[in-house]
Amino acid sequence: MVPVASVDFTSQLLQYFANGVAKGSTYALMAVGYTLVYGVLQLINFAHAEVYMLGSHFAYYQAKWGGYLPDEPGAKPESVPILLVGTFIAVAMLACAAVGMLIERVAYRPLRNAGRLAPLITAIGVSLFLQYGGQVVFGTEPKLFPTFVETEVFEIGSVKIPNTNLLIVVTTFVLMLGLTLFVSKTRPGAAMRACSHDMRTAKLMGINVNATISLTFAIGSALAAVAGVLVAMDQPAITPLMGVRIGLKAFVAAVVGGIGSIPGAALGGLVLGVSESVVGGLWDTNYAEAVAFVFLIVVLLLKPSGLLGKATREKV
């Protein structure tokens, strides 16, 4: 993110706000994955953060094998043609979608009728497996992510916006809009909504529940892959443990926004990103880490179903 020069308070605030919107967009992209899966299976998919990690690594290795990494540290890398960047991202999305579907098939589906806790534990297991498996395969040293886009900084008034941040915000907006349309206007989207509302009835109505759940995982994972690449373009050091922190934050964003709700995930992500950025800038970066959780608790205590969630009432 952009360091802030000593300017007046309002423009500082605006700068932090702009940084926060970019950060919040990546939370939102990740939060959607949590919210979709939770909406259908009531499962906190801990492994989602590791799919994000894989997304950036898949893009990294494509660039590496394509010969777009600097030969020695410090050397200026070759610039990557924009079409190829698109291909890298598309391949990473497809690969992550496949990984997400595989995780569901292997670790969650066998436990669909085993209560709520067993899949939660396998989710933790898959998450650990990918973290440490990542260390075994990729190594523990951080990798320098290639420069896909030359950095350029736009200035609007006193606010500096790097083109990577702009790219993050625009991409997120387009993808969220696309997802919302997909879920509300298409047949598979309707099937997802039906499963999320009542899986048993959906099955009785002839909806292929397994396929729908696979699709849910595929979509969430593909979006996580995009988030992984976008964040790596902005902060180019990638490691097998890079998903842990953003994963937790994004999940919190999903809960704050109202778990199960796509606009909620977007709102939650933005609220957390902006407030973290502002608190970190004006006060202390340590406390910025706590902001997400303070939000979480305040929202849960006042409106447990989240900002945009629907309340349910148990009948007696």
Binding site: V106, A107, P110, L111, A114, G115, A118, P119, I121, T122, I124, G125, V126, S127, L128, F129, Q131, Y132, G133, Q135, V136, G139, T140
Partner: peptide
Amino acid sequence: NGLSMVVYALLLILMMIFRP
């Protein structure tokens, strides 16, 4: 590096699948 945790994670997954 990390192999012990990989095996541990696998055991955890298998354990839950076979004895939830």
